[in-house]
């Protein structure tokens, strides 16, 4: 079995795996990094979204061996240090997750969006997030959390009055 080195969350990791093994399974089964989730295996659901050189990609559909020399970021590496990013904090404060299973992929897609468009519109969010399914239907709060992170608001908890207050201002 060949060995190769991947740069994951800034750390070089050597792994021994079939060169055809998708990054998803190299992360989960070989390296024990299980934050990246398996949902469909055909690049449709977005649960396995990671960043490769800053771009969101489906880990189930890229062989890990093709990523030697590229910079891979997973959900475990989204917060650069012990502190949550503004995006993760917004996700916590607005109580976005229901079952939570798709949320790693949602966050990775949202983080990539904010990187390219720091102040996205609803249309930008729809375009960037349309490939990430949420079976529980957390889309309302995903939109809100991305806006909240973009505007760097202090923690605003989810409730109806907060939403209405915003509408009043608009």
């Amino acid at each position: 079995m060949p060995t190769y080195t991947l740069t994951i969350n800034g750390v070089d990791q050597e792994l021994e795996a079939d060169p055809a093994m998708p990054l998803l399974w190299a992360l989960r089964d070989v390296l024990g990094m299980v934050g990246t989730k398996f949902g469909c295996g055909i690049g449709q659901c977005g649960a396995c979204t990671v960043h490769v050189d800053g771009q969101p990609m489906r880990a189930c559909s890229i062989p890990a061996s093709a990523l030697v020399g590229r910079s891979i970021t997973t959900i475990e590496g989204l917060a650069a240090d012990a502190n949550l990013t503004a995006l993760q904090q917004a996700w916590v404060d607005l109580d976005v997750p229901q079952c939570g299973y798709c949320q790693s992929g949602q966050l990775m897609a949202a983080a990539a969006l904010l990187e390219s468009k720091p102040n996205p519109t609803d249309d930008d969010i729809d375009a960037a997030m349309a490939g990430n399914y949420c079976r529980c239907g957390t889309y309302v709060r995903i939109r809100q959390a991305i806006h909240q992170a973009a505007s760097n608001k202090t923690a605003m908890f989810y409730d109806a009055t907060a939403t209405n207050a915003e509408e009043d201002v608009a």
């Binding site: 299980v34 934050g35 475990e76 989204l78 993760q88 996700w91 916590v92 939570g100 949320q103 409730d159």
Partner: peptide, 19 residues
């Protein structure tokens, strides 16, 4: 209270093994 949110949120947004 509307200020209490999911108990596992922080673990979920950092990719901890929970499932």
């Amino acid at each position: 209270s509307s200020q209490i949110t999911g108990i596992d949120n922080t673990f979920l947004v950092t990719g901890n093994p929970l499932f």
